[in-house]
């Protein structure tokens, strides 16, 4: 297994400018790190030449401390039964990534979502403006600097009396005039 993974890594390394790599033998997984501009050709090569036909997933991680988004493509080779994680980093302040939905049509959905959720621009992406959110005016919500609890507090009213996570049984008992049985009092917070 190890030799197979090494071989895959070497073959990619021979053709492209591999920045870094990591091999997990027990998980049958190779992580390959590239610069952003190599990604489309790498993906196309992996898909067409090396049998990584199946794109399992695409993901974005917001590393706010490092000022970068990490974009990850998860590929799977049905024949060799090996996973490849193709990783790249893009600038967080000016996030632009190549549109790749001609390689895998499903990437269109992913790109629409990331455009909305992270504000990543995909030049040439053909899709209607809105995907999940509707007339959203705030910052892209999946960025880590967007505070969802603050937004929720500002916009959506909470029922009075339930601001904290305190035991409500006493309140309910008082309201309905029932007594809390003794055995239940033991568990009161």
């Amino acid at each position: 297994m190890e030799t197979l993974l090494e071989k895959i890594k070497d073959r990619v390394n021979a053709n492209f400018d591999l920045k870094d790599y990591k091999i997990y033998t027990d998980l049958k997984r190779v992580d390959l790190f590239f610069n952003k501009e190599h990604i489309p050709s790498v993906l196309l090569y992996l898909k067409e030449q090396m049998g990584f036909r199946h794109l399992m997933h695409m993901s974005v991680v917001d590393w706010i401390e490092e000022g970068e988004f990490e974009i990850i493509f998860f590929l799977w080779a049905p024949k060799e039964k090996v996973k490849i994680f193709v990783k790249t980093r893009i600038d967080r302040d000016n996030p632009v990534m190549e549109n790749m939905d001609n390689i895998w049509p499903q990437l269109n959905t992913y790109e629409r979502e990331f455009k909305e959720m992270y504000g990543i621009e995909f030049p040439g992406l053909v899709a209607p403006e809105e995907f999940i959110l509707e007339s959203w005016s705030g910052p892209p919500p999946m960025r880590r600097d967007f505070e969802t609890d603050k937004y929720a507090k500002d916009n959506f009213a909470t029922r009075p009396g339930r601001e904290d996570a305190q035991d409500v049984r006493e309140t309910i008992a008082k309201r309905s005039g029932e007594d809390i049985p003794d055995f239940a009092k033991k568990y009161s917070r």
Partner: peptide, 16 residues
């Protein structure tokens, strides 16, 4: 629907 339930802090769901 009563008080947001487990989505009390979600930016996209109403609470009450």
């Amino acid at each position: 629907t009563i008080n947001g339930g487990m989505y009390f802090d979600s930016y996209n769901t109403i609470n009450q």
